[in-house]
Design a protein around this nucleic acid. Structure first.
Lengths: 343, 343
DNA sequence: GGTGACGGGTGAAACGACTCAGTGCGTGCG
DNA sequence: CGCACGCACTGAGTCGTTTCACCCGTCACC
């Protein structure tokens, strides 16, 4: 079908080795040979076959990134950060979407391992990292993204989600809110569990200080706008006395959905009836019906750092071993918790 | 480093051909041989080397999707649609982000061609399709996504953007708005040009019917929230008499940015001062400060259909040749144009 | 004039999976 | 008994690129 180095070599009247040199180390070849070869390449429409190249090299020059949800701007920001860093290294980033499904995650991991990817960045589902450990041990550098782990054998870059949860709920408590609802799920996501843990800590600390405060959990199946809307409708449907006075959503997508449900019939006023805070501080948060308070994570920096760690891991041997980087989240206050007081 | 079929064959006491058969046509191998081979595979941690496989096969079992902006929910919806359809065929979709940059688009095209991808779906930049024609002619099935073309040699799936633009502006005119601003750019994007063309048509038709109406263009560098905000600030900064009474944004991201700028200081009321309509009807549109009127495109269906056309093209020979599918857009009316009258 | 270095080039081997023409071997049929 | 047939399996050849040991002429130097 398509031309190979051999065809190019024949047409240019040189050997295949020389063609390869022209492609990879042109400075080792005399200028006019280079030119002849390039002419042959153009004429034949030759395109390097990456499969053969990789087969020989043993590894691919791409790195795979598996995220929980491509529809979530937080992850696309992470991806962009990763791309930026990888570009500088001549690496390509290929994006896979696990969609919070273990099966899809596994499918992508298998694909990436079969492709002998130069490395894998992943926001893993669940707590079982044994597959990833195997992948890593078989020689594919692996970095955990947006996920802390006590397993020090992994490189990881994450944000302190417990601190983030605490930050959110302390803010709500400081505003005088006492009946907090945490909306999020599934509990197989570490992010959800940690943010809830932080939230609970904050409530318990308040109680220990004599403040009457409670937290309830409203579970969702995933972290999407749609699930947020359902949860919001459920809350709205309660008798008014059973409403919480503040909601902490596990991410901004949920929060946006909650906001849609709350504002749709005008029954629930935000923040007067219920204060609302999300997590991630995606671009859309500030443009919401009621601009959304949120916990900001340095998303692009996370992607950037993940590639950094990956490169370090790939370089291998040189000292340090796996590293865990943890960033601190930041509270962003907008109208969904404090109303118009600020502006 | 890692085990190959040869190692597996040795350990299981069979030939490499048999191992290959176990992997690809297990029904042709006796049950206990299958079992012995599987045992060997597990023991050695053997993982198929996709590069070798592809080299032999000549083509990859992945298809590449190049979009203008992964941060735009419209495109992630398209991607999801494509994945769903591809899954059923045992194909993987790998996502590349051109970020409206010709260079990045070219880099991904080169990468995908070197990988001998099973096919490429692309939302191309600019008007020069010659590179794509070459790619296609060299044997990589190629489908244009979200892009109409008069070049009937390409398969494509698109939405009638001219009709969409007309729809949007006819809606604004019907509401009594007369001084329309179109916000969008760059003009290298066909989507932008077509939507503007439709908008202009609608205005001209109105004028021909004796209605005094004008349209001005506010150019942006890209279709992002940030650019929308800048454009919004520019409009807001004008003396009040120079405000348009309606804005048609080339997509929802821009519209969200405009909305942020308009509502930030409360100077511009939407829709009282300026009615605002976007394009794409992304999930966030309905949760905006003022729920956003928009032009809906069947995003997942677009992705789905694109893969469908790709498969047809790959099957080749069988009759029909390239196909152009065009969907019709749909007007979605919300408060950003009509205010609270509806609810 | 022999030696060595060097620039420019050669071509066979290797990477790992898949394919396909063969090879035994047992069975059934005439 | 001879033959054809099917089944299970074999193993060399192939895909396209890179690498590496080797070759050849030229030039500088002692």
């Amino acid at each position: 079908m398509s031309a190979s180095v051999k065809d190019v070599a024949a047409k240019a009247g040189v050997s295949v080795g020389t063609v390869s040199n022209v492609l990879n180390r042109p400075e080792k070849v005399s200028p006019d040979t280079v030119e002849r070869v390039h002419a042959a390449i153009d004429e034949l429409g030759f395109v390097r076959n990456d499969a053969a190249r990789q087969l020989r090299a043993g590894r691919s020059r791409s790195i795979g990134l598996i995220v929980l949800d491509v529809g979530n701007p937080f992850f696309t920001d992470v991806a962009r950060g990763a791309e930026d860093r990888a570009d500088g290294e001549g690496l390509s980033v290929l994006l896979g979407n696990s969609d919070e499904s273990i099966d899809r995650e596994r499918a992508y991991l298998d694909l990436f391992e079969e492709q002998r990817m130069g490395g894998v960045l992943i926001t893993p589902l669940g707590d079982d990292l044994s597959r990833l450990a195997r992948l890593r041990d078989r020689g594919t550098p692996t970095v955990l993204v947006d996920r802390q782990t006590d397993d020090a054998s992994f490189s990881s870059v994450a944000v302190d989600d417990v601190a983030g949860g605490r930050l959110a709920v302390e803010h709500l408590l400081a505003l005088g809110r006492r009946r907090i609802a945490f909306v999020g799920g599934p509990s197989s996501l570490r992010q959800v569990v940690d943010r809830l843990a932080g939230a609970t800590e904050a409530v318990e600390a308040a109680v220990a200080n004599g403040t009457e405060a409670t937290i309830e959990v409203v579970a969702t199946d995933s972290l999407t706008v749609l699930q947020g809307r359902s949860a919001g409708e459920a809350l709205r449907g309660r008798s008014r006395g059973d409403w919480p006075d503040a909601v902490f959503a596990a991410n901004d997508l949920l929060a946006m959905g909650l906001l849609q449900a709350f504002s749709m019939l005008g029954t629930v006023r935000v923040p007067e009836d219920i204060a609302l805070i999300g997590y991630d501080d995606i671009d859309f948060a500030s443009a919401a019906v009621v601009p959304l308070s949120s916990i900001r994570q340095p998303s692009a920096l996370i992607g950037h750092t993940a590639v950094e760690l990956l490169l370090r891991e790939a370089a291998g041997d040189s000292g340090s071993g796996p590293q865990q980087v943890v960033f601190q989240p930041e509270l962003v206050v907008r109208q969904s918790t404090v109303g118009l007081d600020l502006s």
